[in-house]
């Protein structure tokens, strides 16, 4: 992909318009998942789609540096822990696994007073976790799948 000549227009359209729009849309889908269609999976998929689009269409993209493979792994793992950890936290708080109702989320609400109930905060946290996990995993998967194969390298 390195020897591709990017047209200026493509460069502009993708980088300045499409990618930001897609990323914004992804975030919107995530944040408004409680009131409108969408949620973690869709948001993660859309974000990953944006990243992939920029990678496929542009060379020397800073997205590659910003979201290097190890970082994508980290993101996915972080997302998984956010979700699974919320469940464990509920267990530690004395409830059943994933029972957000028993976690004292009030402190979060005090810092950021948006008037959400305990369960709403719980839902939001796990949606963020899902988004990160899906985004990281899908981006990583596509990255590996589209990797060109060097014939010299032999696989064991």
């Amino acid at each position: 992909m390195t020897d591709r000549h990017d047209s200026v227009l493509l460069h502009f359209v993708v980088r300045a318009v499409m990618v930001p729009a897609i990323l914004l849309f992804g975030l919107y889908v995530l944040v408004h998942g409680d009131a409108s269609p969408g949620g973690g999976f869709q948001a993660g998929a859309i974000l990953a789609g944006g990243l992939i689009l920029s990678r496929l269409s542009l060379s020397g993209d800073e997205g590659r540096r910003l979201f290097s493979r190890p970082r994508l792994v980290m993101i996915a793992v972080l997302g998984m822990f956010l979700y699974a950890g919320t469940g464990v936290a509920a267990m530690l708080a004395g409830g059943d696994y994933l029972d957000y109702g028993v976690i004292a989320f009030e402190s979060i609400d005090r810092i950021l007073p948006i008037g959400l109930g305990r369960r709403e905060i719980g839902i939001f946290i796990i949606e963020v976790g899902v988004t990160l996990a899906v985004f990281g995993t899908l981006a990583l998967v596509v990255d590996y799948l589209t990797e060109p194969h060097d014939p010299e390298e032999t696989e064991g």
Binding site: D34, G39, Y97, R119, A133, V134
Partner: peptide, 28 residues
């Protein structure tokens, strides 16, 4: 119970959140 508008999200992320956890694990 939950107080959010999207019932699908409510079921997905709370009533049946364990399924969703499993689903995230599928992706993982």
């Amino acid at each position: 119970d939950i107080g959010i508008e999207n019932v699908v999200s409510a079921v997905l992320a709370d009533y049946r959140s364990y399924d969703t956890l499993g689903e995230t694990f599928v992706i993982f």
